[in-house]
């Protein structure tokens, strides 16, 4: 038995660190988001306004960035699912001796520095990058394709970055599908595709959901890759927040946007939790 007093003593140090360096800072951002930004002077004292939040909804540019961010999240999630499922299936169900090497090849890019991976994509996708160079050398195109500073570049880069997360979640999900149930369906006369569609896919649905939520949340929160592949002009929410703080010094707008982004991720996670519970047959 360790007693409650001791338990609290063990949790307290980490609790204090998180309270002091995570919870307090985030809470102190709340008043800022209701403050008024005065160009050149910073935040006006004693003025409270909902303007920063109202602008997120009414301002066309902000709206465009938010929709772009959400669209990017959906597109990257879908791409990761489509690309990830076959690989996850091969790892989970393929030859035993391939398993560990394949998993390591999935983990390796995931552990690699994000900046390095994004840099790799710049080298590939830039106007004078490898892809355009190759295509022009082969005479396929005359002028470079625009592969960066737009949706295409962000899609490719972010899909590459978050694909490993999806694959690992799917591997766990597929391995949890009981082979007996599949065999039972097959003996009952199902075709292979029908077994997959009626047994394997539904039974791996919780993993698909978990992986999708993870990738979606990571994508809409991403700063580094969108900034490196999108440049200073093609913005998503995270890069917009970055610019509000670092370039425009408009902290009130930046903090309101921060809370909007946080609200989006929390809402998605909360919703997925409800869906998962419903699947599990709980109220």
């Amino acid at each position: 038995m360790i007693r409650r007093r001791h338990g609290l003593l063990l949790v307290a140090p980490l609790g204090l660190v998180l309270a002091g360096f995570f919870i307090a800072p985030v809470l102190m951002l709340v008043p800022t988001s209701f403050g008024e930004y005065v160009p050149g002077a910073g935040i006006a004292k004693g003025v409270w306004t909902l303007e920063n939040y109202a602008r997120i909804i009414t301002d066309d540019y902000y709206r465009e960035v938010i929709w772009r961010t959400l669209g990017l999240g959906l597109a990257v999630t879908a791409a990761c699912l489509v690309l990830g499922y076959p690989l996850a299936y091969l790892i989970a169900r393929g030859p035993e001796r391939w398993r560990v090497p394949l998993i390591l090849l999935v983990i390796f890019p995931m552990m690699l520095n994000l900046v390095v991976r994004s840099f790799g994509w710049i080298a590939l996708l830039a106007n004078r990058g490898l892809v355009n160079n190759l295509l022009m050398q082969l005479g396929v195109i005359a002028t470079p394709l625009k592969l960066m500073f737009n949706m295409t570049g962000l899609m490719i880069g972010l899909t590459h970055i978050y694909l490993p997360f999806m694959v690992l979640m799917l591997v766990a999900a597929i391995r949890n599908v009981p082979r007996d149930v599949e065999a039972a369906a097959a003996t009952l006369g199902s075709t292979r595709i029908h077994v997959f569609a009626s047994v394997t896919l539904p039974l791996s649905a919780p993993g698909i959901l978990a992986g999708s939520i993870l990738v979606f949340v990571l994508t809409v929160s991403a700063l580094v890759t969108p900034r490196m592949l999108g440049g200073p002009t093609y913005k998503v929410m995270a890069t917009l927040i970055y610019d509000e703080y670092m370039q425009l010094l408009d902290w009130p707008s930046g903090s309101a946007l921060s809370f909007a982004l946080t609200a989006i991720t929390l809402a998605i996670i909360w919703l997925s939790g409800r869906v998962a519970r419903r699947w599990a047959g709980q109220p």
């Binding site: 102190m28 800022t32 929160s221 700063l223 970055y242 703080y245």
Partner: peptide, 12 residues
């Protein structure tokens, strides 16, 4: 989101 932690700590 990490960027939110970043700006919160910046102000703090």
């Amino acid at each position: 989101p990490a960027v939110v932690v970043g700006v919160a700590l910046l102000q703090y």
